[in-house]
């Protein structure tokens, strides 16, 4: 019963929105806005074919590689910079500078330097995704409780054990907040990296449809992007709930008091 209710809430609003859309587009035929039925039909014929292999999966693959690399590099560098005071003082202004640069402006430069390759696209994704993870990790590491740190120290928990049992879990909530931002930036950059001088990928395909006035096809591509975003968000929430179960429990107890 509880599960049914949950599903009801999850699909309720989407159903209403689709119905509204169907009613609104039922009367006249607007060239730029397809009906749900048209879109569904186009969706199937556009994407359930070669395009899955040639465009969708490679795009998702680059997204996963880029986002994963950004998360790993961000956490490792964040742990290092957050733990070492002089390194923090040294890197802070530089990090602020690089963070301020919008990654799309790097695309033409990277294209010249690396060519129109998969690695170029992955680098674009990393260059934008790394910041929230890196900066949040640094903040999380800095915010470790003094008493907890002293406790660990008196029990001889130092070096790698300290990172594993104290620093990482303690910075966990902050790191996860960074990862959440990183995922949405990743999706945006995945599309952008394929919009310039590319010959395959979701971003390229959608732009191609736009230019050839294949309007329902273009919409179906946008729908795919939305679905990828939803899937990423679900995976994230599921993982976050597992990793930070203690944190949510602690927060509930604190709020109840």
């Amino acid at each position: 019963m509880k599960i049914l209710k949950g599903i009801g809430y999850a699909v309720g609003l989407p159903t209403i929105l689709v119905l509204f859309w169907a009613v609104a587009t039922a009367g006249e035929a607007n060239f730029f806005v397809p009906t749900p039925a048209t879109l569904l039909a186009t969706f199937a014929e556009t994407w359930f074919g070669d395009r899955i292999l040639s465009d969708v999966l490679p795009s998702i693959g680059r997204l996963i590689v880029g986002v994963t690399a950004a998360i790993i590099i961000g956490i490792v560098a964040g742990l290092l910079i957050g733990s070492v005071k002089w390194l923090r003082d040294l890197t802070e202004p530089v990090l602020e500078f690089f963070r301020a640069i919008p990654p799309p402006v790097l695309v033409p430069v990277l294209m010249l330097l690396m060519g129109i390759t998969d690695s170029m696209k992955v680098v674009v994704i990393i260059s934008g995704c790394i910041w929230p993870v890196l900066l949040n990790t640094i903040e999380g590491v800095r915010a470790i409780d003094g008493v907890l740190s002293d406790s660990a120290h008196t029990y001889g928990i130092t070096g790698r054990a300290r990172i594993r049992h104290l620093v990482l879990p303690s910075a966990g909530p902050q790191i996860m907040a960074g990862v959440r931002q990183c995922l949405s930036i990743g999706l945006i950059l995945m599309v952008i990296s394929e919009m310039f001088a590319s010959s395959s990928g979701l971003g390229f395909t959608i732009v191609q449809f736009q230019r050839s006035f294949a309007i329902p096809e273009m919409w179906s591509g946008i729908v795919i992007l939305g679905l990828i975003g939803v899937a990423m968000s679900f995976i994230f929430q599921f993982t976050e709930r597992r990793i930070l179960r203690w944190y949510h429990g602690l927060r509930e107890v604190e709020n109840a008091v």
Binding site: D145, V147, L148, D150, S151, T154, Y155, G156, I157, A161, H165, L166, P169, S170, G172, W246, Y247, L250
Partner: peptide, 30 residues
């Protein structure tokens, strides 16, 4: 190594991400 400290702020001296048993066990594991 031969010394242990108990702090006043119990809420901030135990690892909130570990269960009671793991908290007690960690220094020994280490």
């Amino acid at each position: 190594k031969k010394m242990a400290v108990v702090f006043q702020e119990y809420g901030r001296s135990l690892f909130p991400w570990m269960r009671v048993r793991e908290n007690v066990e960690l220094p020994l594991k280490n």
